[in-house]
């Protein structure tokens, strides 16, 4: 997932598509509208419409196909719920899996087209400032930890860890490596936070939520989405 996260980050910041040009606020609200539509869907036809819409957006925006793999986890986790619906009908069960998968694809589309500071900026409108700061630091630290982990794994492999026949030793070494990562990451986080303070950030580190004026285009897109979701839920 760490590599996917890095790939998504790259897509969000540098992939040229019409989605990247749409304002982050509009995208977040639009995603919320579509998500509510997906969650409120009651039959497989509605889900198929939403899914087709998202697939069409992914393809026309020329986003990579591996984005669909992010929808696999929810498909697996929704299986117990789908199985319970099999007694009613196969369509009901498919609707449950479809809802989970379509919702995951929608969110994948959002993060693949919106840089994370902008998403956190939109979230900071509803989340406590401390939580937004922690989100921002955690996201930044995640990539630093992945870098540390890669270097650590390389040095462990060079010392013979993870080979066949020494499972217990490898397990013990892996746990010690995680322990080292924890101690190291705590020190790293401290330095990172001090760096931000040196740069002049005070009580709040993250200031991503800039004042935003709704454009006509955003409002029009939002209106289209609301009509679409309403239409699908009423008529499909």
């Amino acid at each position: 997932m760490s590599f996917k996260l890095a790939g998504i980050d790259q897509l969000a910041t540098s992939h040229p598509s019409f989605l990247q040009k749409w304002s982050s606020r509009g995208k977040v609200v639009g995603t919320a509208v579509l998500l509510l539509g997906i969650v409120a869907a009651t039959n497989w036809r509605q889900i198929v419409v939403f899914l087709n819409l998202l697939v069409a957006i992914v393809l026309t925006a020329k986003l990579p196909v591996w984005l669909f793999s992010l929808a696999l986890y929810p498909a697996i986790f929704s299986l117990p719920f789908a199985l319970s619906k099999l007694s009613v009908s196969v369509a009901e069960a498919a609707t449950v899996v479809g809802k989970a998968t379509t919702a995951a694809l929608l969110l994948a589309l959002l993060v693949a087209s919106t840089p994370y500071p902008q998403i956190f900026g939109a979230l900071s409108r509803v989340l406590p400032p401390v939580l937004t700061d922690a989100l921002f630091l955690a996201y930044r630290l995640f990539f630093l930890v992945v870098g540390s982990l890669e270097r650590l794994l390389l040095s462990l492999r060079q010392r013979g860890a993870f080979g066949k026949g020494n499972f217990c030793w490898s397990f013990r070494v892996t746990l010690h490596a995680i322990g080292y990562l924890i101690a190291n990451t705590l020190r790293l986080s401290q330095r990172l936070e001090q760096n931000y303070r040196l740069r002049g950030y005070g009580v709040r580190i993250y200031w991503g939520a800039e004042p935003y004026v709704w454009r006509m285009l955003d409002l029009a897109m939002l209106l289209v989405l609301i009509c679409l979701v309403g239409g699908v839920l009423c008529f499909a």
């Binding site: 760490s2 996260l5 630091l137 955690a138 930044r140 995640f142 990562l181």
Partner: peptide, 28 residues
């Protein structure tokens, strides 16, 4: 968050973020 104010939440924020990053990593 209210309880943590007593523990100077702002000063402990880096550790919260660090443990979050580590949980994200191990969960992946």
């Amino acid at each position: 968050l209210r309880q943590s104010e007593k523990e100077a939440v702002q000063r402990k924020l880096p550790f919260v973020a660090a443990m979050s990053a580590l949980m994200l990593l191990t969960m992946s």
